[in-house]
């Protein structure tokens, strides 16, 4: 019994590394991509702005689960050569692609809100002091934006932790899928125990964001 327990926990841990991997890769690509999308949605060039806003609407307006399936199967169904290798890493790549696109769109709206919340006077003060646009962004605006977006970002990133489970719709063997295999055999505790993995992960993130917010508490 105890060996069975440690074997099951070991399997759940290794399945959870897939969740963690998906989480990290999504953040790695979606955080910068979101900024690009945010600038697109604030562009002074109206057609680009409209195109970006439509794209964000479609992505935010449809379920992530559906997007994962469409990205994985869509190219093949449309008669193209599937871009994803037909093995487990191909399924993982498709999941990462879908997650990155989806989360970049959510992040872009958070960035946009943060950027637009910085008073216009900050930019103007930089301009009259002879700063370039990029100097104003990096030296004046950016830290104020980061301070403002930390709470909504924390929220979104916590959602991402739990969303990683959706990768199992294209047979990525993440922790919930692994646990369900046991419940199909009549063993129910592994499924319930997955909650602890997520709780620990989210707890660590909550502490991290609390610490970051405190670090930026020195100015208003």
């Amino acid at each position: 019994m105890s060996t069975e327990f440690s074997v099951i926990i070991g399997r759940l841990v290794s399945a959870f590394t897939l969740n963690c991997e998906l989480f990290c890769l999504t953040l790695l690509f979606a955080l910068p991509l979101g900024l690009v999308i945010a600038f697109g949605s604030m562009s002074r060039f109206a057609p680009l702005r409209a195109a970006v806003k439509t794209f964000v609407w479609v992505i935010r307006g449809t379920p992530l689960m559906l997007q994962v399936i469409v990205i994985f199967l869509g190219p093949g169904l449309l008669g193209f050569q599937s871009p994803w290798p037909s093995n487990s890493s191909g399924r993982m790549m498709a999941a990462v692609a879908a997650f990155v696109i989806n989360y970049a769109c959510y992040f872009s709206e958070i960035y946009r809100g943060g950027i637009e919340a910085v008073p216009k006077g900050q930019t103007e003060a930089g301009q009259v002091l002879g700063m370039t646009r990029s100097q104003i962004f990096f030296k004046v605006t950016l830290l104020q934006v980061i301070k403002r977006i930390l709470p909504p970002m924390g929220n979104e990133i916590i959602t991402l932790v739990k969303d990683t489970s959706l990768a199992n719709v294209i047979s990525n063997k993440e922790i919930i899928m692994m646990a369900k295999e046991y419940s199909a055999k009549g063993l129910i505790w592994p499924l319930f125990s997955t909650a602890i993995f997520f709780l620990i992960f989210v707890g660590a993130l909550t502490l991290l964001f609390g610490w970051l917010e405190k670090r930026l508490d020195y100015f208003r």
Binding site: P119, G121, Q122, E124, A125, V128, V140, L143, Q144, K147, Y218, F219, R220
Partner: peptide, 13 residues
Amino acid sequence: FGLVFQNFNLFPQ
């Protein structure tokens, strides 16, 4: 030119 604003617009950070 230099400009001093009504609302100061100092950089808070």
